[in-house]
Every structure is written in structure tokens, then in C-alpha cells.
Design a protein around this nucleic acid. Structure first.
Length: 496
RNA sequence: GGGCCGUUAGCUCAGUUGGCAGAGCACCGGACUUUUAAUCCGGGUGUCGAAGGUUCGAAUCCUUCACGGCUCACCA
């Protein structure tokens, strides 16, 4: 199969590889001792002035990304992922045969070089090559140097090529890496410990979503990929951990869009003796810190919308926001038919089994959430859609829950956790009723979780942050695929 | 799932009314000892996403399919 899709360029490279082999050269070396990374060279030799020789040799390596031939003296640019540097090669330094061989290497090949660092007359820090070695032969041509790789499908499927030729992609992922590290550092500084809980769960819980189902052969049973780590993390709180977090993947078997990938990265953090107000403070502080550290300032722009993260985030209850932003008066005192007709007026879809809480939430999402730009905490969600949160003392229809909305998107979600096992049992039973009525996203009944609650969960605040969406916000990325190295795509056909 | 758009050389893209498949970069050959999108001379390397159909003739028109993008629906 492989030979069939060989084009001329790939054939040429394979021929070169065979010629190397025939000459006794191994084109896939096992190691190379560097004295410096390219970034280190740039730092250390920054003081070398235009036209000046440093008098010092370095050993470094990288991928050939450009070549400029000038007869008996030429230039090659190599890139090691940290930075790029120009190589200067002359017949005088290398001799005719070696000079020709080094120039004959292809763009994409990975080489090691030794030589003196100097700065050219044009001011470019360079290495005057004395010795070189092929480390890895590249058998496929890279995309064009000027336009890079544009085709989105190729960029997502072959992210390795995207990363080689499109430098801005690396910047986005550098920020993603920094966000994740920043969160871990922040939480560690605040006394949280990072834990791992099961991704393969016999009962998928902690969120309202359809799970992926797989099968355990030895146990002869269905098993689920987790939709959230929540119930296991709260079991750990029962076990006596005071502050825990998990920053890892969850999986939801739902539609794929610019905001949804079937597997996504989520932070969940739980703090004992805290409630949702404490989690609100933590969320705001964390996000402001990430903006400062990673974007460099608290004013940023997302898809043309200017956001000022330096101001205190706004706070509104869901019901108030429907009045203030949505322009409709809604309350749980209205009867269900009144809410249904209100939904109809506003072109909000209502399912048969939907109660007041669901309809109000749908109205909120349509009339309010989509229109919120500046960071806004929305407080006090309907109990009906939130089976794991503590009841609100002022209104039995509500729970102590908030979401942080930025540019119409949910960035964080938190509650005062429901700790009363008797009420949790009733809430689970309601979910089972919904599931029996055909709601595939209703939550599962988890008897062991109730047992854990019966031993006693301290008052606990819980927080979830969607990392991919947060990174989108901080990197001004329009699609979740731009912040996930390998986003989910349909398999390529004609493969295998 | 619906709608719209796209798929042509390794990459980025043109391709007129249906009439021999094009450019730039990359690549190959040649010139050039400080260039940096190097330059100059010569060379087009292709299953026009796939399969059918219409036609003397299809990259171009029609049908179906695949993959992707945007969007609506769905969904935390």
C-alpha cells in the first residue's frame, strides 16, 4: 500500500536514504550530545556584535527549515522547538564533499552541528559549521514556507505538521500548558492536593450527560467512561481530605461542535467547610491570576469583544438576570402553563416532562446567557436541574449554585454540595424517574455514594472549570479544536 | 440530523462558455563565498475527493457517496 502513494518528492527522499545506507551512513541516530539548545545559544551569545566572532564553539541540533544556497558559501536554518538559528557553511570550513553533502540534506531533516557562534554583517546570530551529522532523515516534504499549512482538516489530523510550520499554533499550546500549570500551582499554593479517581466507572455520575459505554470482558459487564469525577472526589472528602482537585479528562457522548469535543479537560476542586460563595472568590481570583500571568494583562479581547477582567465580576441571580437582561419577569410562583407559553413566545423548546426549573433554565440560556459578555456570576439555579447541590435556604425551588459566564459561554460551575443523604436519595429517585421516562441524560442512582454521604460529608464547596473553553478565552480561539492537540475527527477513509 | 460552502501538484491557490491541466513556493539541473520569502537561467512532477450519468468531448453540467468548514438543531 505504501508504495502506491509515493509521489516524486517522497521517492527522491527515499532514494537519498538508500544512498546514505549504501555509503554506510545510519540516517536514524540514537542520540546527540548538545552543549546548548538553540534558545540557550541565543541567550548566551546575545552580546556578540554584528560582524564579530565569539571564539566559542557549540554543539546543537534541530530540524532544517530553510536553506539559501550561494555557491561556495550557504545558509541553513534549523529549528529545535525552542528557537531557530542560522547555520553558515563554506567550502573553506567543510571541504567540497562535506559542503555538498550538507547542502544536499532536505528541508525537514534533523541534523546535529558543531561550530563557532558569530554574528553576520547583517546582524544574524549564526553558527559557522565545522562538523555535522544527520540524526533523522525526513521522508515527507513539508508544506510551503510562506503560507504554512492552512487546510484545517490537515492541520487537525496532522497536528505534528501544523506545529512544525505554523508558529502561532505553538503559542496557543504554550498558553494551554501554562494555564494547566498555573492552575495546579495556584491550587497547590492554596492547600489543595491533586488526586486521580476512576475514569472507568460502573455508574457514571456527577453531571447530566450521555456517557460512552464500553465493556469489561473479565467482569462481563458494561462500564462507562466518566462524564465527571465529582462523586469520587466527594467520596474522598468523606474520607477526610480537606481540599482536593482533579484536572483531567472527562467524556461525553454528545454532539461535536466548535465548543464540544467528546473528551475534554476539566478541573474539579472541592474545599471542606466552604460554600459556593467561597468557590466564587476562588474562581475569580484564579481566573484573574491566569489572565495576568498568561495573557499578560487583565484586559483581553475575545473574537472582537473587549473584556476587562480587572473589574470585580458581576453577580446576579438567575431570576434577576431574566428580568434585567432577558426582560421577562419569571418566578416559581407562576404556574407551569404560564411558563410554557412564555417559552413558546420566546421560541424556547420545551419537552414533555420539563418542570418549571427546566423551562426557566432554558429561558435563561436563550435570553440571558447568550447575551452576557463581561464575566458574570449567575447565582441560584433551579433544583430540578441540579441534583447534587444544596437547597437554597430562601427558596426550596433553588440550590446554591453558580456559573461563571463569559461571552455567552459557561466557564465555571460550582455549588455548595448537598451533604444530606436523605435528600440526596430523593433527588436521585427523581432522576431515575426522568431516566425511566426516557431522559437519557438523567443521572444514575448511586447507592454507594449515598452510603458515603451517610458517613458524613462535611460542608463542602465544589467547583468545575472547563479548561478547553478557558484556554479558548485566553487565546482568543474560535474553536475548541484550536486548543486541543488532537481534536476528535471522523477517521480518514482509505487508510489501513 | 438540517442548511450553505468547500475538496485541483508536496503546500498555498487560479482554472473563462464543456474543448490539450496552470501559477507561486517546494522539488530537480545549472550559476553565485554574508544570505534571510536570497537572486538569476532551465525543468511541471497531477487518480482535478470517490463512484455513476449526460456529452463527440467533463476539473467544469447532473446524481449519489466520503471527508472537512460554517451555521441551525441537539448538548452543559
Amino acid at each position: 500500500m505504501e508504495t502506491e502513494d509515493l509521489n516524486e518528492l517522497m521517492s527522491q527522499r527515499r532514494r537519498k536514504l538508500e544512498e546514505m545506507a549504501a555509503a554506510g551512513t545510519d540516517a536514524f541516530k540514537s542520540n546527540f550530545d548538545r552543549s546548548h539548545s538553540i534558545e540557550e545559544i541565543k541567550k548566551e551569545f546575545d552580546v556578540v556584535e554584528t560582524g564579530e566572532n565569539s571564539g566559542k564553539d557549540v554543539d546543537t541540533a534541530g530540524r532544517i527549515v530553510a536553506r539559501r544556497e550561494h555557491g561556495k558559501a550557504s545558509f541553513i536554518v534549523i529549528d529545535d522547538g525552542s528557537s531557530q538559528i542560522q547555520l553558515y557553511l563554506t567550502i573553506n570550513n567543510l571541504g567540497e564533499d562535506n559542503y555538498r553533502e550538507l547542502l544536499g540534506f532536505d528541508i525537514g531533516d534533523i541534523i546535529g552541528v558543531s561550530g563557532e557562534v558569530f554574528r553576520t554583517r547583517r546582524g544574524e546570530l549564526s553558527i559557522s559549521v565545522r562538523e555535522y551529522i544527520i540524526l533523522t532523515k525526513s521522508l515527507r516534504p513539508l508544506p510551503e514556507k510562506w503560507h504554512g499549512l492552512k487546510d484545517k482538516e490537515l492541520r487537525y489530523r496532522q497536528r505534528y505538521v501544523d506545529l512544525i510550520v505554523n508558529p502561532e499554533v505553538k503559542e496557543v499550546f504554550a498558553k494551554r500548558i501554562a494555564v494547566i500549570k498555573g492552575i495546579r500551582d495556584y491550587l497547590a499554593d492554596n492547600g489543595f492536593v491533586e488526586v486521580d479517581t476512576p475514569m472507568l466507572q460502573p455508574i457514571p455520575g456527577g453531571a447530566t450527560a450521555r456517557p460512552f459505554i464500553t465493556f469489561h470482558n473479565a467482569l462481563d459487564m458494561d462500564i462507562y467512561l466518566r462524564i465527571a469525577p465529582e462523586l469520587y472526589l466527594k467520596r474522598l472528602m468523606v474520607g477526610g481530605y480537606d481540599r482536593v482537585f482533579e484536572l483531567n479528562r472527562s467524556f461525553r457522548n454528545e454532539g461535536i461542535s466548535v465548543r464540544h469535543n467528546p473528551e475534554f479537560t476539566m478541573l474539579e476542586a472541592y474545599q471542606a467547610y466552604a460554600d459556593y460563595n467561597d468557590m466564587m472568590e476562588l474562581t475569580e481570583d484564579l481566573i484573574k491570576k491566569l489572565a495576568r500571568d498568561i495573557v499578560g494583562e487583565e484586559e483581553l479581547e475575545y473574537q472582537g469583544i473587549k473584556l476587562d477582567l480587572s473589574k470585580p465580576f458581576k453577580k446576579m441571580t438567575m431570576l434577576d438576570s431574566l428580568a434585567e437582561v432577558g426582560g421577562i419577569e419569571v418566578s416559581f410562583d407562576m404556574d407551569i402553563d404560564g411558563l410554557k407559553s412564555l417559552a413558546k413566545e420566546n421560541e424556547v423548546h420545551v419537552d414533555k416532562g420539563d418542570g418549571k426549573g427546566t423551562i426557566i433554565t432554558e429561558l435563561f440560556e436563550k435570553l440571558v446567557e447568550a447575551n452576557l459578555e463581561e464575566p458574570t456570576f449567575i447565582l441560584d439555579y433551579p433544583k430540578e436541574i441540579t441534583p447534587l447541590a444544596k437547597s437554597h435556604p430562601d427558596n426550596p425551588e433553588l440550590v446554591e449554585r453558580f456559573e461563571l459566564i463569559v461571552v455567552g459561554r459557561e466557564i465555571a460551575n460550582a455549588f455548595s454540595e448537598l451533604t444530606d443523604p436523605r435528600e440526596q436519595r430523593k433527588r436521585f429517585e427523581k432522576q431515575v424517574e426522568r431516566r425511566d421516562a426516557g431522559d437519557e441524560e438523567a443521572q444514575f442512582f448511586d447507592e454507594d455514594y449515598l452510603r458515603a454521604l451517610e458517613y458524613g460529608l462535611p460542608p463542602t464547596g465544589g467547583l468545575g472549570i472547563g479548561i478547553d473553553r478557558l484556554v479558548m478565552l485566553l487565546t482568543d480561539s474560535a474553536s475548541i479544536r484550536d486548543v486541543i492537540f488532537f481534536p476528535h475527527l471522523r477517521p480518514e477513509k482509505g487508510r489501513e
